[in-house]
């Protein structure tokens, strides 16, 4: 029985690990490629060169460090993406641009081949592919005809709005979109649709005002009844603290040091106020009774250890 359990667990682990691995691979795709770059983005050396974009379309972070990119179908390990560069960790929805300038010494994202190489052609077509860290599992690839490529016109995968698909159709992008969404949805945005349906903003006004009123009405109702509850059942401590000090306390206790001055100051302020003798002030004033408001963190007696008493 125990043996079966162990086998079952091992199988589950294997299954899950395969699933995780498979998901990671299926979430990475070659998203856009520009062979002849004359006027689009420049690399970090200020140079125009062909580029391709890798995109993580999944919902989890994937590190493509250690993976391979190549333009040679017979050499899947042509350029190994350096492993220890944090920029190779792609968050969900993140894109990264590789410059195909044949100058891999220039950094992680400069590969050691160009997109115009003619020594790796497959028939008339050029090839671009990305492989996993084993160099054996093909993650994604793209074939393009070098002779028909135009300057500053890229190929990109076209997604439907809100839906990313690894096998989305490749389309020509007259305006390349490096590190940005490839094709803007041909449909309307939500704001445009609202503008068309409600050109004068009346519907949105009524809807939003209704919601604002409902929410504040709910707040009003909740606190009306909460207030009633606390007025009827409120604990005595609360009432004692917040309503007023008990009468005998005031009468029995003679004004402590400094309290007479406070009363005199308040009386004087009121007198001046009602007789228009006060200065014009931007704000009111309050008398700080100087209560100890320190928390335990700043209370020295709580922080410092007492000196040991020698006997």
């Amino acid at each position: 029985m125990a043996k079966k359990k162990v086998i079952f667990i091992l199988l589950m682990v294997l299954f899950c690990s395969y699933g995780i691995r498979a998901q990671g691979l299926s979430d990475i795709r070659i998203n856009e490629i520009l062979v002849y770059n004359e006027n689009t983005c420049v690399d970090n050396y200020g140079e125009h060169c062909g580029w391709f974009e890798i995109y993580n379309l999944g919902n989890r972070t994937i590190n493509i460090g250690g993976w391979f990119v190549t333009n040679d179908i017979n050499n899947s390990r042509k350029y190994r993406i350096p492993k220890n560069d944090p920029n190779t960790i792609l968050s969900p929805g993140e894109r990264v641009l590789f410059y195909a300038d044949g100058e891999s010494s220039r950094g992680t994202f400069h590969v050691n081949f160009t997109l115009t190489d003619t020594d790796c052609l497959i028939g008339d077509s050029s090839y671009l592919a990305i492989y996993d860290q084993s160099g054996k599992v093909l993650v994604d690839s793209f074939l393009y005809s070098l002779s028909s490529e135009k300057a500053d016109v890229s190929w990109g995968k076209k997604d439907d709005e809100g839906w990313k698909d690894k096998n989305a159709e490749w389309v020509i992008l007259p305006e390349p979109t490096p590190q940005a969404e490839n094709v803007k949805s041909s449909g309307e945005t939500r704001a445009e649709a609202i503008g068309r349906k409600d050109p004068y903003g009346l519907i949105i006004t009524l809807t939003c005002m209704a919601v604002v009123f409902i929410i504040l009405f709910l707040v009003s109702v909740v606190f009306k009844y909460t207030g009633k509850y606390f007025q009827q059942h409120g604990n005595k401590k609360d009432v004692k603290e917040t309503v007023k000090p008990s009468k005998p306390e005031v009468e029995a206790k003679p004004a402590a040091g400094g309290q007479e001055e406070e009363i005199a100051a308040i009386a004087m302020a009121l007198h001046m106020y009602f007789n228009d003798m006060h200065e014009v002030e931007a704000t009111g004033f309050c008398l700080n009774r100087g209560l100890n408001q320190h928390s335990a963190w700043e209370n020295k007696s709580m922080i410092f250890r007492k000196s040991p008493i020698q006997k």
Partner: peptide, 16 residues
């Protein structure tokens, strides 16, 4: 709490 509704009414400024 009933005065809260005045705060809602003034939001007409936004939508106006």
């Amino acid at each position: 709490p009933k005065l809260v509704l005045i705060g809602a009414a003034a939001q007409f400024g936004i939508f106006g």
